[in-house]
């Protein structure tokens, strides 16, 4: 049983006729990172808002927040992407739906992928934010109120700054997750890194070179992202405060 290794394939011209296969993978990485970054912004904004809602005294805000989290974390990401990509244009008014469908590639895949990933991840971030806020001593919120701060001011200046520091480690792993999860968007046609590896494998039949190269790139991205987040954690660390080691958790 022999497999014919040919690492030179990485430098050969790819199916597009001018770039090498390695460049095809790097382009894929570019799409992975841009989709992940855009989705990450959506997830952070939405997730923070929902997370905060779940800790407010308002019953309705808490209910909406809980429903949001349950909805987006109990449906597989792949199915969610199908809903944004296939179903949304059909249920919108015809004009809007058609303009969605007619978006030029790669935006026709990119936009639903970013929205889908962003919403999916927002549920997970909301959970972290809630846990982070609730990990603070209850006296903190009261102290803010006692000083005459309004509820939004208490969140903005007292609770959230500490809560976010506490949840930085789980947020780091959410960053990794969103980068990895971007690969699911290949099912709606986004040629990100995994899809680029897959197309290289389909055209060249050099299965293991293609996947090894893609794997290596993911590992490098991981290392870089972890290093960046560690550096960031150190930068924003409050002297004399050591947060609870782990809040919440869960995997990919």
């Amino acid at each position: 049983m022999k497999y014919n290794w040919n690492w030179g394939i990485l430098w050969q011209t790819s199916a597009d006729g001018h770039n090498s296969w390695l460049m095809t993978l790097v382009h894929g990485l570019g799409w992975t990172l841009s989709a992940a970054a855009c989705a990450w912004i959506i997830a952070l904004l939405l997730g923070s808002a929902i997370g905060v809602m779940r800790t407010t005294p308002s019953k309705w805000a808490r209910r909406i927040g809980n429903a949001w989290v349950e909805l987006f974390r109990n449906i597989p990401l792949l199915v969610q992407l199908f809903l944004w990509y296939f179903v949304l244009p059909e249920v919108l008014p015809k004009g809007m739906g058609d303009s969605l469908k007619q978006m030029a590639p790669p935006w026709g895949s990119f936009v639903p992928a970013v929205i889908g990933l962003g919403f999916f991840t927002s549920a997970r971030i909301a959970e972290q934010v809630r846990a982070g806020i609730q990990a603070l001593p209850p006296g903190q919120g009261m102290a803010g109120t006692a000083l005459g701060l309004t509820l939004p001011q208490t969140y903005r200046h007292v609770l959230l700054p500490m809560a976010f520091r506490i949840i930085l480690p789980p947020l780091t792993s959410e960053t990794m997750n969103i980068i990895k999860n971007t690969s699911v968007a290949l099912t709606i046609g986004l040629i990100e890194l995994t899809a680029a590896g897959r197309s290289m494998q389909e055209f060249t039949f050099q299965v293991f070179e293609a996947f090894t190269a893609a794997t290596a790139i993911y590992i490098i991205v991981n290392l870089v992202a972890v290093t960046l987040m560690r550096w960031f954690e150190k930068r924003v660390a409050v002297p004399g405060f050591i947060g609870p080691a782990a809040v919440g958790g869960g995997a990919h």
Binding site: M176, T182, S183, R198, I219
Partner: peptide, 20 residues
């Protein structure tokens, strides 16, 4: 290693690797 690569890539890996 498993935790740093996407599940989809792992699926592709094993789909081709298992026969070998």
């Amino acid at each position: 290693l498993m935790r740093s690569i996407p599940l989809l890539l792992v699926i592709f890996w094993f789909y081709f690797l298992v026969p070998y």
